[in-house]
């Protein structure tokens, strides 16, 4: 464990909690892409099946349980409890265009052709594009609530911190995982234009609105 990975995990946890609290407190999931949240629930489910097979640490196990629990709670709030506030018309990204190619790539490019490893690879590839429906929805509505931008900032920051973690682990532990690194770079690059808007607008107290 190193400071980049720990802050990365805490940033990820913060993002998940911010979103859950935003929906729960405001009793609304306006502006939130339910499709992205379903993809994240799939990412965690396919990545953390090793909860059943191997124990690494209390921290590792508890964080995985929290991530999976919050992901499904968020999906439940969006599609069940507060479904009246779900903006399905703007959440129109065709996720099959993500899941199918990612599934194919996971079968073709992986470290080991075993069930758990292919699922893990699938979850790594899927996570790198899982935010696209959310970013697409914001580009369609042309704006985002400030709390949603904080959620997205923490979520984008987490994988950026993981990139620093992999640099650290490469030098100090000669560990590297090319699949996770390449997918992590893609994932972080997808947030770049959002990061620019967040830093130039939201941090200056303005609302995030895109030129329609």
């Amino acid at each position: 464990m190193n400071v980049f990975r720990l802050t990365g995990d805490l940033s990820h946890l913060a993002a998940i909690i911010i979103l859950l609290l935003k929906i729960w407190k405001s009793r609304s999931c306006a502006g939130i892409s339910g499709k992205s949240q379903i993809l994240f629930a799939i990412v965690f489910t396919t990545r953390y099946l090793d909860l059943l097979t191997s124990f690494i640490s209390i921290y590792n196990t508890s964080m995985k349980v929290i991530y999976i629990g919050c992901a499904y709670a968020t999906v439940y709030l969006i599609y069940m409890k507060f479904r009246a506030t779900y903006d399905g018309n703007h959440d129109s990204f065709r996720v099959e265009f993500l899941v199918v190619p990612v599934g194919g790539l996971a079968v073709l490019v992986n470290h080991d052709f075993s069930f758990l490893e292919i699922l893990w690879t699938f979850s790594i590839y899927l996570e790198s594009v899982a935010i696209l429906p959310q970013l697409f929805m914001i580009s369609k509505t042309g704006e985002a609530e400030t709390i949603t931008t904080h959620y997205l900032f923490c979520l984008g920051l987490y994988r950026a911190l993981y990139l620093l973690n992999w640099i650290w682990r490469f030098y100090f532990e000669s560990f590297f995982d090319m699949i996770a690194i390449v997918a992590g770079v893609v994932q972080t690059v997808l947030y770049c234009d959002f990061f620019y808007l967040y830093i130039t607008k939201v941090l200056k107290g303005k609302k995030l609105s895109l030129p329609a």
Partner: peptide, 10 residues
């Protein structure tokens, strides 16, 4: 390359 069992990252 690390097998799944040693995937200690979240």
């Amino acid at each position: 390359m690390l097998s799944v069992a040693y995937k200690d990252e979240l």
